[in-house]
Simulated assay, not measured.
Amino acid sequence: MKMSFRWFGKGYDHITLEQIRQIPGMEVVVTSLLDIPVGEVWPLERLKALREEVESYGLKLEVIESVNVHEDIKLGLETRDSYIEKYIKTMKNLSQIGVKVICYNFMPAFDWLRTELEYQLEDGSRTMAYRHDFVSKIDPENFAEQFMEQSKDSELPGWEPERLKEISRTIERYKEMTEDKYWKNIKYFLDSIIPSAEECDIKMAIHPDDPPWPVFGLPRVITGRENIRKFLDLNKSRYNGITVCTGSLGANRQNDIPAIIREFGKEGRIHFAHIRNLKFTSDRDFYESAHLSKCGSLDMFEIVKAFYDVGFDGYMRPDHGRMIWGETGRPGYGLYDRALGAVYLQGLWEAIDKMTNEYKLK
C-alpha cells in the first residue's frame, strides 16, 4: 500500500507540498491541472513542470485525479470521438511523466453531492453533510446557487463554477437518457481508451457515484457490488478498474464494503482507494465524520484489513476530512484532519501486518 494525499496545486490549495511531506509515511501526491477546461488536452510541458515541483519535495506524482470526462461523451453525442481523442492524448502525456493511475468518474452533470458544507459537530469541528429530503424537494438550479454561496469562492472538484452555471441546461440534455443507453455510452468510452491505457501502462480507476442513488432524475450506475461487476465486465482488461471510495459506497447501508474489496481486490481490479468514514443520522442522511471507526458508522479496521488480506499494493489516501483547530479552506480538504486520517490508516495497516506475521510464526 502506498499512502497518498490529494493536493489541488499551487494557487488552488491553501496546503503546501512542504506541509504534505511532513505527514509521516506520505509517499505520493494526487493532483491535477484545474485550469484546463474539461475536454482539452493537458499540455506535456505543464505536466513536466508539475512533476518537477512535486518531486522537489521528495514526493512522487503517480496518481492523477481527475481527467474529467466531457459531457458529450457521457451523452453519446456525435462529437464524443473528438473528445475521446483528446482524452487519449492527455493519457499519453501523463504516461510520459510517470503517472500510473487516473481516477475519474462517469457521473452526469456534476460529481458528488452534499447539502451542507459546514455542518457543525458537537466538538466544534465542521464537516460536510447530506440530507436526502432537501435534495428531493429543491430545484437543481437553486441548489447550484446555494452550493456556490456555501463554497465561499473555493472551487470544488466536480462543482466548478462553469459547470454550475449550466446545470439546468445540462440536466435537461439527460431528459431522454435511459440507464441502458448510459451503460452503452460507458462501454463505448472504455473500449475507446483502454487499449491506450494498456499501451501507456496507466490503470483507469472509476470512482463510485456519490451518493450511490439517482439525483435530480439523473442516471447513477456505479453504486454497489452488482453494478461494479457489470462495469468491469464491459471491458475485462486489468487496466479497467475501480477506485473504492468507502464514503461513497458506504452511503448505501446495503453495500458490504469489506466484501466488495475482497471480491474485486483478489481480481486485481482495485487501483485506488479513498478511505473516509461517515455517520448516519437516518437511512439516507449522513455527515462526514473523523476517520476513527467509533466516530462514524463504518468499521475502518475491517475495511483496511480487507485491503491487506487481498495484498493491495496500490494507492490509498485519506478522503474528505473535517475542518478542525480553526482551519479554513476548501470544504472537506483541510490539512489537519486528513493528516490524522493518513496516520490512523497507516497505524491500522501496521498493526494488521504485525499481527498477521506473528500468527504465521506461531
Rank of each mutant, 00 (worst) to 15 (best):
G326T: 02
G326I: 13
S293C: 10
D233G: 05
E302R: 13
Y308T: 00
L278A: 12
N240V: 05
P258D: 03
P318Q: 12
N277L: 10
G326K: 13
R330Q: 06
G347C: 03
I242H: 12
S289Q: 03
E263Y: 13
F307V: 01
D309L: 02
S297L: 09
A259V: 05
Y344V: 01
Y308K: 14
S248A: 15
F280T: 08
H271K: 05
F312V: 02
D337G: 01
L298V: 10
F264S: 04
S248T: 07
S282V: 09
M316G: 00
M316K: 06
D256H: 12
G321A: 03
G332M: 04
R253C: 00
T281K: 13
E302V: 05
P318L: 09
G296P: 04
G347A: 01
G247A: 10
G321F: 01
V244W: 08
E288V: 12
M316A: 10
H271C: 07
K279G: 04
R225C: 05
H274E: 07
I260A: 07
R338F: 02
K279N: 11
T246M: 10
M355D: 14
G314L: 00
M300P: 03
G334T: 14
I324N: 07
E302Y: 06
G341S: 15
N235Q: 02
Y315W: 09
A273I: 11
F280P: 08
I303V: 10
D283S: 14
G247M: 01
R238C: 10
P331A: 05
R276F: 01
R229I: 08
V304S: 08
G332T: 03
G296F: 09
D313R: 13
L340N: 13
D313F: 02
D256S: 12
Y344M: 02
P331I: 03
R238K: 15
M355L: 15
S293A: 09
I352K: 04
I352P: 00
A339T: 01
R225S: 11
S248N: 05
G321P: 06
G314K: 00
K305W: 03
R229A: 14
R262H: 11
A273G: 08
P318C: 08
G326E: 07
M355N: 12
